[in-house]
């Protein structure tokens, strides 16, 4: 600065500094807003591009009730949609209890010890392992070593392992946000630790855990890589046996060992074909997938928003 120390800068100089500051602030805020708008425009572009390209199939009811076919105008997503539903059922039944239990242990029970450290480092590391590596785990272990084959059970298990860190982290955060007073009140009534956790902490943490489970399942629905690696077929022109039946024992577990396909794989298959007609099917499948995953993520954000508002 031109002025000597102790002296105020002259009036015009001061004004030019202030002007310069304003200008740089404006430029920086402008750049930030532009990046933000570009990101929003891209999300819109992805969705609109899919919707426009897939429109002829999206409005055709046959698309939802037909099996895949060699003829693009007859191909549909029925087997993929059913496959996704059944795989998600397995994933939810495995990942949610396991993840919540692990989260409760780490947050409520774990003493500071090297075992706890190992588990914690392990969970944060698992969150960073690429999804296709989980696919290799499933291929080597579930498909070949355990002999489960390329089935709905294998796919459900591998996706459950993939989203396990998401659910563990969400459970821990939800439990951590429960005020200590609630626990103290329960102890004051004579409850022991397990009663406190079971009757007070878990019910109070339920919305946060639910949010994590929804985000995790939304991720699992859109994942293709680990399911492709275990060798899921792309051309499935039949449905797995139904899980319920009219004769006793009414519940049937054959569907677990059925071959299957899921929606992201169906999309991948159609987009990889050279014929442009199949790309229409791929786009339509993409719209269905995006509506499902964005809807689930939106629901999770809404639950969390309500939770924060109620907490105030």
């Amino acid at each position: 600065m031109a002025s000597s120390p102790g002296k105020q800068p002259a009036q015009p100089e001061l004004e030019s500094i202030v002007r310069g500051n304003r200008r740089s602030d404006l430029v920086m805020a402008g750049i930030g807003m532009i990046v933000l708008l570009v990101a929003m425009a891209l999300l819109a572009a992805v969705f609109i591009d899919l919707a426009v390209k897939g429109w002829p199939r999206l409005i055709n009811p046959d698309f939802y009730i037909n099996f895949p076919s060699r003829h693009p105008e007859q191909a549909g997503i029925l087997s993929a949609a059913v496959g996704t539903t059944l795989v998600m059922l397995v994933t939810a039944l495995v990942a949610i209890p396991l993840g919540v239990a692990a989260g409760v242990y780490l947050e409520e029970y774990a003493a500071r010890s090297w075992i706890t450290d190992v588990i914690e480092i392990n969970v944060s590391n698992l969150a960073g392992v690429p999804s296709i590596i989980y696919g290799l785990l499933a291929l080597g272990l579930f498909v070949h070593a355990f002999g489960l084959g390329e089935t709905i059970l294998t796919a459900g298990l591998v996706l459950a392992l993939l989203i396990l860190p998401v659910i563990i982290v969400a459970t821990r955060e939800a439990i951590r946000s429960i005020p200590l007073e609630l626990r103290e009140a329960a102890y004051g009534l004579g409850a022991d630790k397990w009663q406190t956790v079971r009757l007070y902490v878990l019910p109070a943490a339920r919305p946060g855990i639910l949010t994590g489970a929804i985000v995790g399942l939304a991720r699992a629905i859109g994942e293709a890589a680990p399911v492709i690696t275990i060798g899921a077929l792309t051309f499935i022109a039949f449905l797995p046996p139904p899980p319920v039946q009219a004769q006793p024992p009414f519940i049937n577990f054959e569907w677990l060992s059925s071959p299957f396909t899921v929606m992201p794989i169906q999309l991948f298959n159609w987009v990889s074909r050279p014929q442009a007609e199949f790309h229409i099917n791929a786009a339509a499948t993409g719209v269905v997938l995006m509506v499902m995953t964005l809807g689930m993520n939106g629901l999770a954000i809404y639950i969390r928003y309500r939770l924060r508002r109620d907490a105030r």
């Binding site: 999300l43 591009d49 859109g222 993409g286």
Partner: peptide
């Protein structure tokens, strides 16, 4: 408002991004 929107962007299935990359 922006942070939830960024989360939505993270939730788009990657195979959909693949479609977007090759055909758009």
């Amino acid at each position: 408002t922006v942070k939830p929107f960024l989360e939505l962007l993270e939730g788009v299935p990657t195979v959909v991004y693949g479609f977007f990359a090759v055909l758009f």
